[in-house]
Amino acid sequence: MAERNMVNLTITMTREERKALKQIALDKDMTVSALLRNWLKEHQAKEEQNK
């Protein structure tokens, strides 16, 4: 992965949501951070298609 200027992000969610997010990442063999970056990339691509 290319060197990036990383920052910390704090999100508020329930314990159940946190557990579900961690399980989804585990099922995909990735970190929660990688999962969120992947979701963001896909979301941005969909938004571009809708323009």
Results as ranks from 00 to 15, higher is better:
Met1Gly: 11
Ala2Asp: 10
Ala2His: 12
Glu3Val: 05
Arg4Gln: 10
Arg4Tyr: 11
Asn5Arg: 10
Asn5Leu: 14
Met6Ile: 05
Val7Leu: 05
Val7Ile: 15
Val7Asn: 07
Asn8Trp: 08
Asn8Thr: 07
Thr10Leu: 11
Thr10Arg: 12
Thr10Ala: 09
Ile11Ala: 04
Ile11Asn: 01
Thr12Pro: 00
Thr12Gln: 07
Thr12Cys: 08
Thr12Asn: 05
Met13Cys: 08
Met13Gln: 03
Thr14Gly: 09
Thr14Asn: 06
Arg15Asp: 10
Arg15Ser: 12
Arg15Cys: 01
Arg15Asn: 10
Glu16Ala: 09
Glu16Cys: 06
Arg18Trp: 02
Arg18His: 12
Arg18Cys: 11
Lys19Phe: 14
Lys19Tyr: 04
Lys19Thr: 01
Lys19Pro: 02
Ala20Gln: 10
Leu21Pro: 01
Lys22Glu: 12
Lys22Leu: 06
Gln23Ala: 14
Leu26Glu: 06
Leu26Thr: 11
Leu26Asp: 09
Leu26Gln: 04
Asp27Phe: 09
Lys28Val: 13
Lys28Glu: 13
Asp29Val: 01
Asp29Gln: 12
Met30Arg: 06
Met30Tyr: 10
Thr31Ser: 14
Thr31Pro: 00
Val32Trp: 04
Val32Glu: 05
Ser33Tyr: 05
Ser33Leu: 09
Ser33Trp: 14
Ser33Glu: 10
Ala34Gly: 03
Ala34Thr: 08
Leu35Gln: 03
Leu35Lys: 07
Leu36Trp: 00
Arg37Lys: 10
Arg37Cys: 12
Arg37Thr: 01
Asn38His: 12
Trp39Val: 12
Lys41Gly: 01
Lys41Met: 07
Gln44Lys: 13
Gln44Arg: 07
Gln44Asp: 06
Ala45Ser: 12
Ala45Tyr: 13
Lys46Ser: 07
Lys46Asn: 15
Lys46Ala: 10
Glu47Phe: 02
Glu47Pro: 05
Glu47Trp: 01
Gln49Met: 15
Gln49Leu: 11
Gln49Thr: 09
Asn50Arg: 15
Lys51Trp: 13
Lys51Gln: 03
Lys51Gly: 11
